[in-house]
Simulated assay, not measured.
Amino acid sequence: MQHKGPIGVFDSGYGGLTVFKEIYKRLPQYEYVYLGDNARVPYGNRSFETVYEYTKECVFKLFEQGCNLVILACNTASAKALRSIQQQDLPAGKKVLGVIRPTTENIHLFTKSNKVGILATQGTVLSNSYKMEISKMHPEIEVFQQACPFWVPLVENNEIHGEGAHFFVKKDIEELLAKSPDMDTLVLACTHYPLLLPLIEQYTPPHIHILAQGDLVAKSLVDYFKRHPEVEQACSKGNSLKFFTTDDPLDFEQKANIFFGKPIKAEKLEVVRGI
């Protein structure tokens, strides 16, 4: 009989906390373990092989913590590593889910023009994961992408109200919208980007729907548990939260408050020797 364990939530840094916050809001009864690989952030500009190896190491570290289910609350890891881990590496009884499918499954509910824009890291854009997934599920939808390489550093350095944030958010949104005048939906395809939402709204025409992922992922997990009761039953209940980082716990605690919305306590977890 499978031992019950907490739900693991992984991100390359802090951004996954915006997704975790929504999951916890909807499903507070479970035990959770969050791991941020802050020592090796950012993942967005790294190769497929590197992101796969880093993600796999962190996922297996969460398995060691007793997790039977791990959510990759990171678009880059979901784009570059999820499929390989699911197909090649999963031990019996373990599951790993990502954040791309819940978004792409539901995108048709938000667009009327069938013209959708993706704002993402360079790695997610180059993977073409959103284009491929949306094309498979909704071939009538045309997808336009824009890499936003400065947005994550702006968020992680708490510069979201500075002149640089205004400049780069305005520039990237204008470049994306120039690709199609009929675009009516924008997907924030990075878990950091909801922190920039007030700026994004400021530079986006009001008729365009802006889609953050947290609530979609949380709703999708509720539905997944209904369809897979055996996975739900392997998740322990207890309304408890543990936070780990591969870097400085004090720094993580300070910045996590911005993303998670309330103070947390963190511990350092070595994923590989020296990290």
Rank of each mutant, 00 (worst) to 15 (best):
S129I: 14
V155R: 01
T124N: 04
V169S: 02
Q29V: 08
Y32T: 00
I71Q: 02
N114G: 05
G117Y: 10
I118E: 12
L72M: 07
P153K: 06
L221T: 03
E175N: 11
N239F: 08
S236R: 10
E163W: 10
K171Q: 15
Q86W: 11
V51M: 07
A147F: 00
N257H: 14
G36S: 10
G123C: 08
V59F: 04
A81H: 03
T103F: 11
L27E: 05
A165K: 05
H108K: 15
T245C: 04
Q87N: 14
K112T: 14
L186K: 08
V187S: 07
E49W: 01
G44K: 07
Q2V: 06
V125Y: 08
Q2G: 06
E174G: 03
T245I: 07
V33K: 09
S47Y: 12
N106L: 07
K226L: 14
G44P: 01
I208N: 08
F60H: 08
L82Y: 12
D89Y: 12
E142S: 13
R83D: 13
N45F: 05
D172A: 08
K61D: 02
E53N: 12
E140Q: 15
Q65R: 07
L195H: 03
R40P: 02
Q233N: 12
G261L: 09
T121Y: 03
V33N: 02
G8A: 01
Y203Q: 01
G15P: 02
P28L: 05
L211P: 06
P263W: 06
E270H: 13
K170G: 06
E31K: 13
T204M: 10
K56T: 10
L35H: 08
L176M: 12
V59I: 15
P153F: 01
E22W: 02
E267R: 11
P42S: 08
T124C: 12
L90S: 12
R83E: 15
V9H: 04
Y14V: 11
M1C: 08
V187E: 07
S84D: 11
K136R: 14
D182C: 10
S180I: 06
